[in-house]
């Protein structure tokens, strides 16, 4: 057995060496940092990391911090509406574009271009458009509609919807592109069969085609979910968490506590909560999406 292993390694030695950078990155930059982050969340670290052990004290503090609870609540609301609207809008766009429209590539280009831009840019643009002193409200007042109010970015009740609007503008093109690619991949004979069966077009999409596109739908939802959990830039650019703490999100909470509030223990506790949540939600998806059809290496 041992001799066999040596022979195998010898034969493929260069391949082992070539994968060394990847191994180093995975072990140190991903797993190592992750482990250390988790470890720090059980310490009393403030400005500098400490090696003591305070149990779950940081977690107790964390879930006693209104700002964190607000962040979590905001994330849930944003994620729900963002995913729902992106999915519905993106799917509708894809289906409508698929109806043999003229200037198809123009429409595709228009719907996807926001995705090519940075979140910072998306945040800034919509902040201006929704800014009462500059954007739509200002324009309406200029036109004589002095009672018109559109103050989402400065209204703590509506600010989340401003963020949702900006992120939907940024992300629904992705769903459109992926679903459209999927629609184009559907066997044309299926469509012919449905015409023989006399199934109305909307029903074909709903009952036959969309179920067939499950992998695309999952992929796009996964991509969007990741971007919404990581969401930081857009909030910083658009509202910087305000007004007050009305648009705080977890990613920003962590960054603030790491670099401004010097509360490393609390920040790592928060990031551990995010880590665990993401792993719990994503692990089955990743498994079914990427590992069932594993490479041929074996």
């Amino acid at each position: 057995m041992g001799a066999e292993l040596t022979r195998h390694v010898k034969r493929n030695l260069v391949a082992y060496i070539a994968l060394l950078p990847m191994a180093v990155v995975v072990i140190f930059a991903y797993l190592g940092t992750m482990a250390w982050s988790v470890r720090l969340s059980f310490s009393s670290s403030k400005l500098l990391p400490r090696n003591d052990f305070v149990g779950i004290a940081q977690y107790l503090t964390l879930f006693d911090t209104p700002r964190w609870l607000t962040s979590l609540g905001n994330l849930v609301i944003i994620a729900f509406f963002f995913l729902l609207i992106c999915f519905v809008l993106g799917t509708l766009l894809a289906i409508f574009i698929d109806q043999n429209v003229r200037a198809e590539s123009l429409f595709r280009t228009v719907f996807l271009y926001p995705y090519a831009m940075s979140f910072v840019v998306a945040g800034l643009i919509w902040q201006w458009i929704l800014n009462p002193d500059l954007g739509i409200q200002h324009t309406m007042h200029g036109l004589g509609f002095s009672g018109f109010v559109l103050d989402w970015v400065v209204n703590s009740k509506m600010v989340l919807y401003a963020i949702i609007l900006a992120t939907v503008w940024h992300g629904s093109g992705l769903v459109m592109a992926l679903i459209l690619a999927g629609l184009r991949g559907v066997d044309t004979e299926i469509w012919r069969a449905t015409r023989i069966d006399g199934i109305p077009t909307w029903r074909v999409y709903l009952s036959i085609v969309l179920p067939m596109l499950r992998p695309m739908i999952i992929t796009s939802l996964v991509l969007l979910s990741i971007s919404i959990v990581k969401m930081y830039d857009v909030v910083v650019a658009m509202t910087n968490g305000g007004p007050g703490t009305a648009s705080e999100v977890p990613a920003k909470f962590i960054m603030d506590n790491l670099f401004e509030r010097a509360n490393i223990g609390l920040a790592t506790a928060a990031s551990t909560v995010m880590l665990v949540t993401v792993l719990l939600v994503m692990a089955p998806v990743i498994y079914s999406q990427y590992f069932r059809k594993s490479g041929r290496a074996s």
């Binding site: 991903y30 992750m34 990613a251 990743i286 074996s298």
Partner: peptide, 24 residues
């Protein structure tokens, strides 16, 4: 190429890409 453990490494790498940067 056949490299023992490579697929496990790759799986970890992929999983890592789903984790928010704030953790690292």
């Amino acid at each position: 190429w056949k490299v023992k453990g490579a697929n496990v490494l790759f799986a970890c790498l992929l999983l890592g890409s789903f984790v928010p940067y704030q953790v690292f």
